[in-house]
Each structure stands twice: as C-alpha cells, then as structure tokens.
Design a binder for these strands. Structure first.
Length: 422
DNA sequence: TCTGGGGTCCTAGGACCC
DNA sequence: TCTGGGGTCCTAGGACCC
C-alpha cells in the first residue's frame, strides 16, 4: 500500500503557525508580485474565490470578509516543509518527497496502516501545527484519489483508506476525470467528448487506446486506476535537470539597462541556488517577453542559450553569460513584462574538473569558491541583497512587489517569533 | 484592472551516421 | 523510371503538476 500525505492549504497553514489569532479567520496567500491567489483557507474557498484568481479582482470581497492576506514567503514555507518531511521520515521506512507539501509514503510491511497514519498526522500537528490529510491505496494514482476524499469528507477524519474493491469503485464513480492526477484540461475535454466522464469510466478504457491517444502517460493512468502500480516510490533523489529564476516585473521595463539589471539580479539568485545544492551549470538560457495578456500591444518573446566551456556557479560568470544571451535577443521599442534565466546541464561538484582537450590549459582560474561562500554567508546572515554585484543596478523600480510579507520567523534571528505569557 | 513560479516527462521531427 | 533503412541524438513544444 501507498499513502499520500498532503498538508491542508499548506501556505495558509504555514502563516497560521505563528499567528494563532488567524486560526479562525479566513487567510489567503498571494503569488509573486502580489498578483493572484495561490493558497486559500477553507473559508476563502467557500467564498467562491478560485485558485489563481487575480488578487485585485477580488480585493473588495476579501476585505469585506476580513480575510488576512499575505505575500508569498517561500523561505518560511520551505523551512516548515523540510521539518515536516524529517518528522515523517522518522516514523516510516521510506518516503518520496513529491512536492513542497506532499510526500508519498511506502507502507509495505506495515501491519496497522490506519493507526500509523493517525500517529503521523497527530505528530505533525503537535510538533508543527500543520493540519494534514492522508489517502491510502494500492497505487499512487489511487492514493491521490483517496486523499481527495480524505480532505472533503469530514466523517473520514482526514484519513481515507481505499482498502477494498467496493470502496474503490464507489470512490471512482463519484469523482470526475479532471480530478485525476495527470488528467488536465486538454485531456479531460477530449475524453469527455468520448463519453468518459468519471474516473470509473476511465478505469474501463482499453489501456492500448489510451496510449494511442495520450501516450504512455495516459496508459499508465488507466493501469494505476486498475490497481496495477506503474509509478514506484522513487528511492534516490534524482539529480535536478534544470534550475530557473523567472519573474514578472513589478513595473514594465522599456530600456535595456533596467532589463540587464533585472537579468543580473536573477543570475545572482540562480548562483545562490546552484551553490546551495553544490551544482554547476554549463548551459545558461535567458528569455524575455512582453505582456501576453495584452494582445493589442506589440508582442515579442525570445530566448537565447550560452554554452560554456566549463561548468560555473559563481555570480560573476553567470551574469556575464546572461548578458551575452540578453544582447542576442534584446530589441528596443518593446515593453517587457517578464524575464527569466535557466540553467541546464547541471553537474555536481567534482565533475567539474574535467579538462577540455582543446581548451587552453591556462584559462583564467575559476572564481574563488571561498569568496562566494563568504558572500552567501553574509547574505544569509544579514538578508538577501546585502552584498551584490554592481551589475544588478541600484534602481529597483522593476522589482517585484511583496507588500504583505510575514516575518521570517524560522530563518532570521531578528524576526524570530515572540510568545507572551499572561 | 489584473491575471505566479518552478519543475518534469513525453513526442515529433530534423540532422546525421553507417 | 529509381532514388534504403535503421538507428541515435538533439531540440522545440505541449501537457501536466503543485
């Protein structure tokens, strides 16, 4: 058996951990730039505010209902996530971290599955204050279905175990295909036109037909719904294949210098991410684009890739590479709204010493790793952006907005939570 | 008026090779 | 009056997920 544990409204729950006064008040968390809603408490969901809705469109409704609004605070969420994962790991033989708030748990060999799951939920609640739901079934896809019911059916008390054929049949008959893991908008539209409406319908489709229409991905879904496990619990954490930093601008950019400064800032952040994971990149791409939500404005979007002679992860080399890419694609006269930088061909430490036969032996030395460790430590201690390259510029008008940020309760000494006893 | 960011996996199709 | 066929590698783009 496989369990899928999922934190309820994770980002909202993280904000509530240090603000018990919000426990019974509606809460929502915004995307970058305070653009749209990406996490809603149950009360906000009940108001009919959809996931991903533009904040500004619902600002009044949210204010009318006294909803507490937060800018997204990924340092906080990431920290609470890793605490939650370690807790779970200490209680079970094997987990696979699937997303920031969801691990799959391998339950093979466990005797009293439900008791263990109750214990896991209780431990997370008591130690972290995060509410969770657990779905249990024979395959990952079915565990996802079980989790769907665990969240929505109060009688289940947040745990749903699809332990029999009958229960599974009932569960599949009452859920539409669009709720199934891996079935998005396009595929459900196509399937519905063929009369496949519920997950139970989908379970009956010939897997070979699914493969023809929707590749092996579709075939696997049907098999998994039939209780045949096609997606194993991944043992080793795979090496990441790409790392990116992309942002919409707080204000649109119309000149090269601001764009260059933005790209340099993203390149700096990319370097931090690479160094934190001890990774190097040999392939840096940059993209820029105008606002695609304004079809009447002149549209332009392009990207360029720079392939490097040797793997890098220091800020200066990344900024240099990114600037070269940017120069190749920049066209004057457009209003840019978004840009990003991506690193591909990631290589772990140690693999970066390989010498290219045809490259000059006496190339300039790699930027000193000690220097970058010192810079990272300073920025970690005194806040991101304490020390940065002049290429990132001083004008911050294009920077993203985060007007409603909560304190860094768990990662900054100067913002640690304070409790008062009365 | 505004509408996120960071990932993965899969396929088609072109280039190239023998 | 015919112009192979099989294989690999790479990239762009689509679809999906949280």
């Amino acid at each position: 058996m496989i369990a899928l544990l999922d934190a309820n409204n994770f980002f909202v729950s993280c904000e509530r951990v240090f603000r018990p006064d919000l426990m019974n008040r509606p809460v929502a968390v915004l995307s970058n730039n305070d653009g749209c809603l990406i996490s809603r408490s149950n009360e906000v969901k009940a108001l009919g505010v959809p996931m991903g809705a533009p904040y500004i469109k619902y600002k009044d409704v949210l204010a009318d209902h006294n909803v507490a609004i937060f800018s997204s605070h990924f340092t906080l969420y990431g920290d609470l996530s890793s605490r939650m994962m370690s807790l779970i790991e200490s209680l079970v033989p094997k987990i696979e971290v699937y997303s920031i708030d969801e691990p799959f748990i391998d339950l093979s060999g466990i005797k009293n599955i439900e008791a263990l799951c109750h214990h896991i939920r209780h431990t997370i609640w008591r130690s972290l204050g995060i509410p969770t739901s657990i779905g249990i079934a024979k395959t990952k896809t079915l565990a996802k279905v079980a989790n769907y019911y665990a969240k929505r059916t109060p009688a289940f008390k947040s745990i749903c175990y699809l332990d029999s054929f009958d229960r599974t049949e009932l569960a599949l008959k009452k859920i539409s295909i669009g709720e199934i893991w891996g079935i998005g908008k396009q595929i459900s539209k196509k399937l519905e036109s063929q009369g496949v409406i519920t997950a139970w319908d989908l379970k009956q489709v010939d897997p070979r037909c699914m493969r023809q229409q929707f590749t092996v991905v579709g075939e696997r879904i049907v098999r998994e719904l039939n209780g045949i496990s096609c997606l194993a619990i991944e043992d080793v954490e795979d090496l990441k294949k790409s790392i990116q930093v992309t942002r919409s601008f707080g204000k649109p950019i119309t000149n090269f210098y601001d764009l260059k400064a933005a790209i340099a800032t993203y390149a700096t952040r990319l370097g931090e991410k690479l160094r934190r994971q001890d990774l190097f990149t040999q392939n840096v791409s940059v993209f820029i684009r105008t606002n695609k939500h304004r079809p009447n404005d002149p549209q332009y979007s392009n990207s360029a890739t720079v392939v490097l002679q040797k793997p890098i992860n220091d800020g200066i080399s990344l900024i240099k590479a990114a600037s070269i890419a940017l120069q190749q694609i920049y066209i004057n006269g457009y209003t840019y709204s978004k840009a990003g930088i991506m690193a591909h061909e990631l290589k772990p430490k140690g693999q970066n010493v390989q010498l290219d036969l045809f490259s000059n032996k006496f190339e300039e030395p790699l930027q000193s790793p000690e220097l970058w460790e010192a810079i990272d430590n300073l920025n970690k201690r005194y806040g991101r952006g304490t020390l940065f390259s002049a290429a990132c510029g001083k004008s911050l008008s294009w920077k993203d907005k985060k007007n409603l940020l909560s304190p860094s309760y768990t990662t900054r000494w100067d913002q640690i939570a304070i409790a008062f006893a009365r």
